[in-house]
């Protein structure tokens, strides 16, 4: 089965700040931007519970002193402002930007060979963006942001994972 993790920074995220500033300078009307490191793990289904715990303690993925980590499919986490699927005031789009081959063999080796954690068969890595836009033409703005800044089609690809409607806080 596949489990997906979003890892964010507790301290200000300079990449996020510069990206937003640049989009504004390009007159791309993005209201706000949030960024996470994205990891997906193809795991042994019957090890789900313990892996969800163990993987959060892997230093290379999450350093609790500077990172927070959220399982993306965690329903209750919708109430957390830091969660990718949090409903804000404006609509937002959740976009995953990855390299064309997103497999992270290096991390898989660290997990299985260095740390001897079993049950993980495949790891992929990417950047998750939550882009919030004005009510109208949101998707167009998101695609503009991607094409002009957030991804380079010659070595990356992107997937709009979903739209989260606005109306929240």
């Amino acid at each position: 089965m596949l489990i997906e993790l979003a890892v964010g920074l507790k301290v200000p995220d300079n990449v996020e700040i510069t990206a937003l500033r640049t989009l504004r300078a390009l007159s791309i009307n993005v209201a706000s931007l949030k960024r996470w490191e994205y990891y997906s793990f193809e795991i042994d289904e019957n090890m789900e519970e313990q892996l969800r715990e163990t993987l959060l303690s892997v230093d290379v993925i999450v350093n609790a002193n500077k990172n927070y980590a959220l399982w993306i499919d965690n329903e209750q986490a919708d109430m957390d402002k830091n969660h990718p699927r949090y409903m804000g005031r404006l609509p937002s789009f959740l976009v995953l930007v990855e390299e064309q081959d997103p497999a992270d063999e290096h991390l898989l080796r660290i997990i299985s060979e260095r740390l001897l954690i079993g049950g993980v068969k495949h790891v992929e890595r990417g950047t998750l963006w939550r882009i919030s836009t004005p009510e109208k033409e949101g998707e167009g703005i998101v695609r503009q942001a991607l094409e002009q800044l957030l991804f380079n089609r010659h070595y990356q690809k992107y997937k709009i994972l979903g739209k989260i409607r606005g109306g929240g806080e």
């Binding site: 300079n14 510069t18 640049t22 300078a25 390009l26 002009q148 800044l149 380079n152």
Partner: peptide, 13 residues
């Protein structure tokens, strides 16, 4: 720009 987002892209804009 510290290669933020990716190297050269922010400067290119």
């Amino acid at each position: 720009y510290e290669d933020r987002v990716r190297a050269g892209v922010v400067a290119a804009r």
